[in-house]
Simulated scan of single mutants.
Amino acid sequence: MIASKRPAKRFVYCLVAACAVAPSVACLARDLNQDEVLELRRRGVILPLEQFIDQALGRYPGSKLLEAELEEKHGVLVYEIELLTADHVVRELKFDAGDSRLLQDKEDD
């Protein structure tokens, strides 16, 4: 009877271990701190944030900037710009910080 409980016990341990690792795998994006951002900008790895804000506002004339941040996602540096459009819709735009390509433009929830 004790031998039959061991596989169940191992399964529980594996499940607990998987749950402990899952949040770190699911969270593949990280915000960069201001020192990291300044160093990347100084080295020319990323383009200036102002360029991306202007590009986002140009797509939606009359909109207001709500938030801008630089994140690293899957090894790619991404500027996320959140706007409130003139129609009162919140939009989230994502740009490649190195070459200014628009990666995503979607209505935010």
Results as ranks from 00 to 15, higher is better:
residue 104 Q to H: 06
residue 62 G to Q: 07
residue 99 D to V: 15
residue 28 L to Y: 15
residue 20 A to I: 10
residue 36 E to K: 06
residue 73 K to C: 01
residue 62 G to L: 07
residue 49 L to I: 03
residue 101 R to A: 14
residue 82 E to F: 06
residue 51 Q to Y: 12
residue 35 D to R: 13
residue 86 A to F: 11
residue 65 L to P: 09
residue 46 I to G: 00
residue 23 P to R: 03
residue 66 L to M: 14
residue 6 R to W: 13
residue 78 V to K: 00
residue 53 I to M: 09
residue 106 K to H: 13
residue 54 D to S: 15
residue 61 P to K: 13
residue 41 R to A: 10
residue 34 Q to D: 10
residue 41 R to E: 09
residue 34 Q to C: 00
residue 41 R to M: 12
residue 68 A to P: 04
residue 88 H to G: 00
residue 65 L to T: 12
residue 82 E to Q: 09
residue 65 L to S: 05
residue 97 A to L: 03
residue 31 D to E: 10
residue 109 D to S: 09
residue 79 Y to M: 04
residue 99 D to N: 15
residue 73 K to M: 03
residue 106 K to P: 10
residue 18 A to Y: 06
residue 86 A to N: 07
residue 94 K to C: 06
residue 93 L to H: 04
residue 79 Y to W: 15
residue 87 D to N: 13
residue 59 R to P: 10
residue 62 G to A: 08
residue 35 D to E: 11
residue 25 V to D: 01
residue 34 Q to W: 03
residue 13 Y to R: 13
residue 108 D to C: 05
residue 63 S to C: 09
residue 4 S to C: 09
residue 98 G to E: 05
residue 78 V to S: 02
residue 3 A to V: 10
residue 1 M to C: 08
residue 75 G to I: 03
residue 21 V to I: 15
residue 13 Y to P: 02
residue 98 G to P: 05
residue 5 K to A: 11
residue 82 E to W: 01
residue 50 E to L: 02
residue 55 Q to Y: 10
residue 75 G to D: 01
residue 39 E to M: 13
residue 68 A to M: 07
residue 2 I to S: 07
residue 101 R to Y: 01
residue 55 Q to P: 08
residue 51 Q to S: 12
residue 26 A to W: 12
residue 74 H to L: 12
residue 9 K to D: 07
residue 106 K to D: 10
residue 101 R to W: 00
residue 59 R to T: 08
residue 32 L to N: 01
residue 49 L to R: 13
residue 51 Q to I: 01
residue 47 L to N: 09
residue 70 L to P: 04
residue 23 P to I: 03
residue 51 Q to N: 08
residue 49 L to N: 09
residue 66 L to D: 10
residue 60 Y to G: 04
residue 75 G to Y: 04
residue 38 L to F: 06
residue 87 D to Y: 08
residue 32 L to Q: 02
residue 101 R to M: 08
residue 86 A to P: 04
residue 37 V to F: 03
residue 6 R to N: 07
residue 14 C to I: 11
residue 13 Y to L: 15
residue 26 A to R: 12
residue 21 V to S: 12
residue 19 C to H: 09
residue 27 C to L: 12
residue 86 A to S: 15
residue 86 A to E: 11
residue 18 A to R: 14
residue 108 D to M: 12
